[in-house]
Design a protein around this nucleic acid. Structure first.
Lengths: 209, 209
DNA sequence: CCGAAGATCAACCGTTCGGTGTATTGCCGT
DNA sequence: ACGGCAATACACCGAACGGTTGATCTTCGG
């Protein structure tokens, strides 16, 4: 096959981490860094201009999150090959990114060859998933599906609001708030609001600020 | 002054981030990367061997955390110039690192010149603190001091244990557990256990897992 | 059109929580 | 020797919580 190098874009809000990726790509002749972006918004612009073969997309970014950007890009370019990249706080991030259309998932503490292999594989075969992630994915497969309302209530729970205050915050009666709180706890499989919040945090369902 | 370049060591569990720092140091003739370490334990060994002028130390690492390593190093080498480096989840990390003897603090999303400037400044003047960090530091200066017992109870609270279960876990009566819980909430300035946990998490006083 | 699912509200129950007292023991620093 | 602080413990109270049952209303997809 007489084609050029794989054209790669990196998206991460940490300049130094982008430099690390750039250095990694530089030592491989079959990989070429064609664009960098510091958040999702810029990434979408760059993608439209340059159509990179593979995109490494951080999930935890300000301005526009990675999962959201992946959703926008795959909607506009269904064959976009995007690898989600994160520090691995949670699992909801994995699900969100993959559901949004990511073709693979890498942890930020991945070894250099793991990143290179992932880029090559996702370019050649269209997808890639490392063991650790696949295990997590299987482990938490009973994906928790919270409704928008329940998510809203969960975030208020995390701020320490009592049922009465949650009710006031969402403009409903305390009875309604209690039902939502109860549903959240049942769906997360816990017995009290505090554990509901910590479980939601550890699975990336909600975030602190 | 006719002396050689500033000898720098980087400590971070993310290989790619270390590469980014390496690339950054490479383009500055007055800076030289003399060692890398993937966690605190290795960092201590390398420091003893090579005595770097400045050390960039990540705080969130497995095996041996950054704050602990800083404590060990500054105890053994009181003039060690160590800059703490973190993604900035919390504020307790800042305090811990500085109390352990760190001479400065950098966020991981820092710009390249900020890192370079920090290295030069801490080498020349012995310390450095960026604005954002100084502000946080001032903001949360009323440092919360929890006792060991209270920390233990706080971690159990985060796991969603009820007072009764906390009492059983620490082998004391429920009355005692209640007192500890109450003290934790009072010291954190909150009105319920859930908020106590989220505040503690956001300030880095406790961590998930 | 009809069923499923989400959202809303109410009443009720036993348990837990937040908060305030008071009190004893032991340790540490002055 | 004394004061201060942490840890322990008990009693008491009103408020909040976890859980259940039952009900109405809307929305959305087949």
């Amino acid at each position: 096959m007489a084609r050029g190098p794989i054209r790669v874009m990196t998206v991460d809000d940490h300049p130094i981490f982008r430099d690390g990726l750039a250095a990694l790509l530089a030592v491989h002749t079959d990989l070429e860094l064609v664009a960098e972006a510091e958040h999702g918004g810029v990434a979408i612009e760059r993608f439209r201009e340059l159509r990179p073969d593979v995109t490494l997309m951080d999930l935890s970014m300000p301005v526009m999150g990675g999962a959201e950007a992946i959703g926008v890009l795959t909607a506009e370019f269904p064959d976009a090959r995007i690898i989600a990249l994160t520090t691995f706080q949670g699992d909801a991030d994995i699900h969100r990114a993959l559901e949004a259309g990511a073709r693979g998932y890498l942890l930020k503490d991945a070894l250099r060859h793991e990143v290179v292999d992932a880029i090559r594989t996702v370019y050649a075969e269209g997808w890639v998933l490392p063991n650790a992630v696949a295990q997590r994915l299987a482990k938490y497969t009973p994906r928790v599906e919270l409704t928008e309302r329940e998510l809203e209530v969960l975030r208020l729970m995390a701020k320490g609001l009592r049922n009465k205050d949650i009710a006031r915050a969402i403009g409903r009666t305390e009875a309604t708030a209690k039902v939502h709180v109860l549903h959240v706890m049942q769906k997360l499989g816990v017995n009290d609001r505090t554990e509901a919040v910590t479980v939601a945090l550890s699975r990336g369902i909600i975030h602190l600020d």
